[in-house]
Simulated scan of single mutants.
Amino acid sequence: MDRRLVVLATGMFAIGTDSFVIAGILPEVSESLGVSIAVAGQMVTVYALSFALLSPVIAAAAAHWPRKRLLLAGMAVFVLGNLITAIAPSIGWVLASRFIAGLGAAMFSPTATATGASLVAPERRARALAIVIAGLSAATALGSPIGTFIGGLGDWRTTMWFVTAVGLIAGAGVYMFLPTIPPLPAVSLRERLVPLRDSRIALTLVTTLVAYSGFFAVYTYVGATFDQATGGQPDVLAALLLLWGIAATAGNFAAGYITDRFGSRLAINGSLAAAAINFALLPWTTAHLWSSALALVVWGVCGWGLLVPQQHRLISLAPGSASLLLGLNSAALYVGVSASGVIGAAGITLLDRYQLGLIGAAFIALALVIAQITYRQISRVAANDIRLAESVAN
C-alpha cells in the first residue's frame, strides 16, 4: 500500500477520532469542569461548526499554498487545539480550543482527499480516496472506543493527549514521506457555491444536514443516554462504541454494493426509514445491554450507510463538479453535527436524556421526506430533459 496515502489516512484518523471520541467522555468532562452535560456537549458543536464553516473559506483562501505546507500547517493547528484542550482549566478554554482544533481539521481534511487523488494515476483515484477516507471509518471503529477506554483508565484529559499524539505522528509522517506538491488551481468561494443554485443539489445537501443532526443529537450524549445499559462503566461504553464503529464500516461497504446494484433511492430511503424506527425505539432499547447493542448495530449500518448513496446522488447530478459537491456534502454533515449539540441539549432539557431518541427520530423522518421530495425533483427534471431531447430529434 502506498505509504503516502497511509500517512494522509493517519491524519484523517486523528481528525475522525477527535470528532467522535468527545461523546464518550462527556460525563467525565462535565464532572471535572463543574458544568452540565448539555454545556459540555457544546465541545462537539464548536468543533463541528468550525470545521463546516471554515472548510470552503480555507479552500478558496489557501488555494495558492503548496499542498504539503497546507497539510503540515493544518495538522499543527489541530495538534495545538487538542493540546490546549488537554490542559484547559475551564469550559471557556475548552470551547476555544475546540474551535482551534476544528480550524486545523478544516485545513487538513479537504486538502488530504484532494492530495490523495492527485498522487496516483486517474484510473486509481477512487481507490486512493478510499484509502484516505478509510481513516475516518477506522476512527469510528477504533479511534473513538480506544480513546474512550483510555479516558476510563486515566481521565478525559488523557484521551485528549492520545488524540494529540496521533496528530503529531500524522504530522511527522506528512513531513517525512509526502513529496512537495504544487498548489491546485485557485477557485473562488463564489464559484464553489454555484452548484447550490440547483434545487436538486441543495435538497440533497439539506437531507444530509437534517439526517445527521438527528443521528448526532443522540451520539453527542451517548454516554448519558446509554448509561442504564453500561452502568456508567467507560469500558462497557467503549465496547458498545467499538460495535457501533464496526457496524458503520460494514454499512458503508454494503451501501456501496446496494447503490451500484439498485440505485441511490433505495439505499437512501431504506437507511433513513430503518434509522427513524430504530431511534424511535431508543427510549426502550437503551434500558438493557443486549438491546442497546442491537440498536447501535442498526444505527451504525444505517447512519454511515447513508453517506455513499448521498454522494452517488450528488455525483450523478453534476459529474463535472464531483469534488466540489462532495466537499459541500461534508460541510453539510458537519453543520448537522454542530447543530446536534444544541438540539440534544434542548432535548435533554425539555424531555429526558432517555427520550432523546425520539427527537433524533423526528429529524431522521424529516430527512426521509426531504429525500423523497428530492427524488421527485430529480425525476421531473429528467423527464423534462427526455421530452426536450425528443422534441429536438423530431
Rank of each mutant, 00 (worst) to 15 (best):
I359N: 04
G116A: 10
M1V: 14
Y257G: 00
L184W: 08
D235I: 07
V7M: 15
D227F: 09
I87E: 13
E191H: 05
L5M: 05
W161T: 11
I131E: 10
C302E: 10
Q311E: 04
I373L: 15
A52M: 07
L241I: 13
R387N: 10
A331S: 15
L203G: 02
I91L: 09
W284E: 14
Y175F: 13
L129S: 10
A38E: 15
A121Q: 06
G214D: 03
V206N: 04
S321W: 09
S90M: 04
I343C: 05
W290Q: 01
P56S: 00
A371R: 02
R265I: 09
L203A: 08
T10F: 04
V298N: 08
A139P: 07
A238M: 03
R124S: 14
S118D: 13
A59G: 12
A128V: 06
A106N: 11
L243V: 15
A23C: 02
V35R: 06
W290L: 05
V335P: 02
I84S: 09
N269I: 06
S32K: 00
A105G: 07
A318C: 11
S30N: 09
G327P: 08
F149A: 15
T285K: 00
L282Y: 13
G152M: 08
L314Y: 13
I359K: 05
A114K: 06
S30K: 11
R387P: 02
S271K: 07
L240S: 06
V174Y: 01
Q355V: 05
V166L: 08
S97F: 00
E390P: 00
V187T: 07
L326D: 04
A112L: 04
R4G: 13
S137D: 09
L317F: 01
L80I: 09
D235P: 10
A9L: 10
A361R: 09
V337L: 12
A393P: 00
Y354S: 12
D155C: 03
L189S: 12
V222R: 03
V44L: 00
L272F: 10
A9S: 15
E28W: 01
F215T: 02
I181W: 08
A172M: 11
V35L: 14
G135Q: 03
W290G: 03
F99D: 09
I246L: 15
L80C: 11
A96N: 01
Y375T: 11
A274I: 14
Q42A: 11
L71H: 03
A273Q: 02
L368C: 13
T140K: 04
G245M: 02
L53Q: 09
A250V: 12
R265L: 10
T148H: 05
L49I: 09
A202I: 01
E191W: 00
A186E: 14
P66T: 01
A322V: 04
G320H: 10
I100C: 04
S50N: 12
A186M: 08
A14V: 02
P122M: 00
R387M: 04
S292R: 02
L142S: 06
F20Q: 06
D260R: 12
W93S: 09
A141H: 04
A138C: 07
S19Y: 01
L49D: 03
A365F: 13
I87F: 15
S292C: 05
A238F: 06
A86S: 14
L209H: 04
A267E: 13
T349F: 10
